[in-house]
């Protein structure tokens, strides 16, 4: 049943590319991004009657797309599970019984403000990112590289902020270790 407030025949022309890019940033897979856009359009077409014109057509379609992305991440193969004990087990940073670092972290002698000019370091970090476990990789990229807000990430992955902080903490530690072995020890 059609809704006079909507123009479905113009959706592809108007929104397909921007919805595709929005999805691609999140799922990092062109085929999955296309499928998400397609399923969002299909769902929108089926639920045209629910559109009352309170928001714009674009906002409404993006709302549907966001739900499709959430479903994608919530589906079993994409579920993010957090093992609260794995940080201790991973042993990336070791502490003595009083909680002090056993091994001194390497002094990179880099001013964070000036590292933005270091393209070589960016390339090494990009390589290190590929070595992260899938769940850490996805969330780190959204937060630190794509600049998506914590709230939005928690919604999309259906995780609590505390889980998000744990994931980011672990991802950063793994990247730090990788950079030390691939970059700083060779300099």
């Amino acid at each position: 049943m059609s809704n006079e407030l909507l123009e479905p025949q113009k959706w592809v022309e108007r929104y397909a590319d921007m919805m595709y890019r929005y999805s691609l940033v999140r799922v990092r897979d062109s085929e999955a991004a296309e499928e998400l856009v397609q399923s969002a359009f299909f769902a929108a077409l089926k639920s045209q009657n629910s559109f009352a014109g309170k928001s714009t057509e674009k906002t409404w379609l993006f709302g549907i797309l966001k739900h499709k992305i959430m479903d994608f991440f919530r589906s079993s193969k994409n579920t993010i599970s957090i093992d609260p004990t794995s940080d201790k087990k991973s042993g990336l940073i070791k502490f003595d019984s009083s909680g002090h670092m056993i091994q001194k972290p390497g002094d990179w002698k880099l001013d964070p403000e000036k590292t933005t000019e270091n393209n070589e370091l960016a390339q090494v970090l990009a390589q290190c990112l590929k070595g992260l476990p899938e769940k850490y990789h996805r969330i780190f990229v959204l937060k630190e590289i794509d600049g998506i807000s914590s709230e939005e990430i928690c919604n999309e992955f259906d995780i609590k902020p505390t889980n998000l902080w744990v994931i980011l903490h672990r991802a950063r530690n793994q990247l730090k270790q990788c950079l030390e072995s691939k970059w700083f020890q060779t300099k």
Partner: peptide, 10 residues
């Protein structure tokens, strides 16, 4: 440093 470099990649 990691945060800054990630923004460059971004």
């Amino acid at each position: 440093v990691i945060c800054r470099v990630a923004k460059v990649i971004g």
